[in-house]
Amino acid sequence: MAELTYREAVAEGIAQEMERDETVVFLGEDIAKAGGVFKATVGLYDKFGPDRVRDTPISEQAILGAAMGAAMTGLKPIAEIMFSDFLAVCWDIVANQIAKIRYMTNGQVSMPLVIRTANGGGARFGAQHSQSVENWSMMIPGLKVVAPSTPADVKGLLAAAIRDPDPVMFFEQKSLYSSKGDVPEGEHIEEIGVAKVVREGSDVTIIALAAMVPRALDAADRLYSEAGISAGVVDLRSLVPLDTKTIFEQVEKTSRLVTVEENPRLCGWGAEISSIVAEERFWDLDMPIIRITTPHIPLPSADELEDMALPSVERIFETVRQGVD
């Protein structure tokens, strides 16, 4: 094990796959010589050279279109969209082209590519550089959607995403870039579509994703020490495929379910999970399902306002405590 930051794990994951597979190529704005605006791809240009790690113009449609054309003809591109908010300017390529082409062509075309993007709030960037948009991707048939919460998962899931024969939306939570954690040295790969029970509990299950995982864990500590509530925490890790098996196991065990979502309220991923659990595990529930989300507003920039908007440890703690009471 080596201790790495979340951002270092990005470069490690990419390097691991570029070393073993010549067809892995990487493109994006400022990603090569500059090492990325979040410094998550430092060193890759020097290591793999200008043919494999390429800077692009500010042309998000061209970036993803080129990645798609390369993927359908034999390469395994990794494309970076600097901030996930910018997906809106190339959403046609994501939602109409990349996601649909295999089905439309009855399987003639494969789309082994990864779209990496810095997602979510906490950096005081304001509404156009902070939104958590994983739910946009979740509603498009044909996209896999992954959002890691730890450096180890960044490396392992990014490697898995690169090897995956289908398009993977890979959401890196920008508030986690400087967080640290142990990462297995040498080849490390995780399985996409498997949620992780990161804390066992018997009274309530909290399902969280990406930056909400450490917050849910902190809240669970407080729930136990301050209120005597045993809260389990599930790190969902992937929205598509969705690990309903793990969710159901935890619901059966605790009979109470809370989701903690950074995306705005309407059609957030927790809504889908709530609906599945309500449809298929209703009789296991002892309490209405609770969704803790960012309110349905664009994110504000001032420290106090942004902190109020994003689900905080305090809000998770209070909401769960009151719900379980």
């Binding site: 080129a66 054309g69 993927a71 003809t73 390469l75 046609d92 082209q97």
Partner: peptide, 23 residues
């Protein structure tokens, strides 16, 4: 390699296939 029904989308996609050939 496909017929595309959203105006303009396939121009960068064609560029991507050309990138593969170049690479």
């Amino acid at each position: 390699m496909g017929s595309y029904a959203i105006i303009g989308a396939h121009l960068p996609i064609a560029a991507g296939a050309a990138w593969k050939a170049q690479y």
